[in-house]
Design a protein around this nucleic acid. Structure first.
Lengths: 126, 126
DNA sequence: TATTGACTTAAAGTTAACGTTAAGGTTTAC
DNA sequence: GTAAACCTTAACGTTAACTTTAAGTCAATA
């Protein structure tokens, strides 16, 4: 049960040209082809794409993801290295979330302040 | 007590050329100049830059920030509009954080899985 | 059989947000 | 008073991550 690029595009919300671009960039070296050269994505490939999207959406650069994929292709001997990479990334994501939350509080304060000001403004202008 | 571009650069961690770039893009229309045309940043300006960085670091595009600044320059009559803009942005930031947290859990699961695999691998290869 | 539509590659274009360079004016420290 | 350390504008360059275009192959459908 393989999928065409279009089906994968629909499942992953990644445009077909983006899937090809990722492949060119070395993010999807495992995707196989039919006799006529057409891409055939397996269930496993979809799992992989899921992880790649997760890493990308948390700010990992494509080059870094490529490194991770390359390590994975080398089998068990790189498990420790991959673990370390993900642990590093985890820290990074946690830091991002904290920063975001801090910024969020600032935005919330501003909203409160502007709301107050707006109430005053309405009274002064009636 | 005004600041030079360099001092502001140090305080805000924004390079001087970035401050000039932001000004060109309409993010800092309030910054005044000395007689000889040198930028003089007030304490208030620093406050403003703080908010701008907050919005930028939470993913608001420079064009959007410019809109917000322009509204602010028009005074009290735009308070409601600004409130609405920030409320929209707040939602956006909250969504970003949630997404990040979801992705973080996936990364954590992968780390757990790889750690297990690594333990097995070590046993098989001794 | 012809045309529609999905697939292919290579390569050039786009966008946001800077970053760098050139060419020159001004202020401050010794 | 002069050299270093600032400042200015204008314009071109860079990077990441796509996006589009051009030119063509292949398979199924009317």
């Amino acid at each position: 049960m393989d999928y065409t690029i279009k089906q994968v595009s629909e499942k992953t919300k990644l445009k077909a040209h983006v899937l090809r671009y990722y492949e060119r960039e070395g993010l999807l070296p495992f995707v196989s082809r039919s006799e006529s050269g057409i891409r055939r994505y397996s269930e496993d490939d979809l799992e992989w794409i899921g992880l790649i999207c997760c890493l990308k959406n948390t700010g990992m650069a494509i080059k870094q993801i490529k490194k991770f994929v390359e390590l994975s292709m080398q089998g068990g001997k790189t498990l420790k290295q991959r673990c370390d990479m993900l642990a590093e990334h985890k820290k990074d994501v946690e830091a991002q979330i904290e920063k975001m939350q801090k910024h969020l509080r600032k935005v919330e304060h501003k909203i409160e302040y502007f709301t107050e000001q707006y109430e005053k403004y309405k009274i002064d202008n009636t």
